[in-house]
Simulated scan of single mutants.
Amino acid sequence: MVDVRRVKLPGVGVLHTFRTDDGGKVGVITHRSGASDLVAFADYDDSPEAQNTKVTVRLAEDEARTLAELLGGTQITESLSSLEQVPGLSIDWFSVDYEDHIAGQPLGDLGAHGVIGVAVVAVVRNDVTNPAPADDFKVFPGDTLVVAGSPEKVAKAFSFYRTGEIRPKAPADAPTGA
């Protein structure tokens, strides 16, 4: 596992750094504006001489995954499994097909369609995770939506994504006659 150091940069943002197997030091500065800078040092030395040395660093798979996380593509799909143990919370994956209503459309606001208390926490596209997508995030066939909420509300969201309609679920103990 890669050990990541986090340092707050007042007025700038946050610097995350880690050491590579070949002795290099890689970092990402996440600016308050949302921009990110990739920084690579020749040595794990914090001296000014080392910080001025530019180098190409070959990253191992777990190092590259760590760098991707720092740049914004978190491994949300791998870490959500522990949340599935929370009572009343359902986390489920919706795979978007060509015939689904949501295909080619922005996510939109589910609350405007009557589904309150459910959230799309990520969209996975081509092995890239887009965490906390905005309402205007456009969804395409092949995407996977990671949805969290009560099991009933997640089912309603899936129904809407599939058909464009919310199908109200009648309570199991509701009377059937007038």
Rank of each mutant, 00 (worst) to 15 (best):
V4T: 00
R5T: 11
K8E: 14
P10C: 00
V12T: 10
H16G: 05
V26I: 11
V26D: 02
I29M: 08
I29A: 10
I29D: 05
I29R: 12
T30C: 09
S33A: 06
G34R: 02
A35Y: 07
A35H: 07
S36C: 08
S36T: 10
L38I: 15
A42V: 10
D46C: 06
S47A: 11
E49F: 06
A50I: 05
A50Q: 08
T56K: 15
L59T: 05
D62K: 08
A64C: 03
R65N: 09
L70T: 00
T74K: 07
E78A: 11
L80V: 15
S82Q: 13
L83A: 15
L83W: 14
L83C: 12
Q85D: 13
V86N: 07
P87F: 04
S90C: 08
D92W: 03
D92Q: 14
F94W: 02
D97Q: 09
H101E: 13
H101R: 14
I102S: 00
P106S: 04
G108I: 01
G114P: 06
V115L: 02
V120Q: 02
V120R: 00
R125V: 14
T129M: 00
T129N: 05
G142W: 08
G142C: 04
T144D: 12
V146K: 00
V147C: 03
V147Q: 03
E152K: 14
A155P: 00
S159D: 15
F160T: 07
I166K: 03
R167Y: 12
P171N: 07
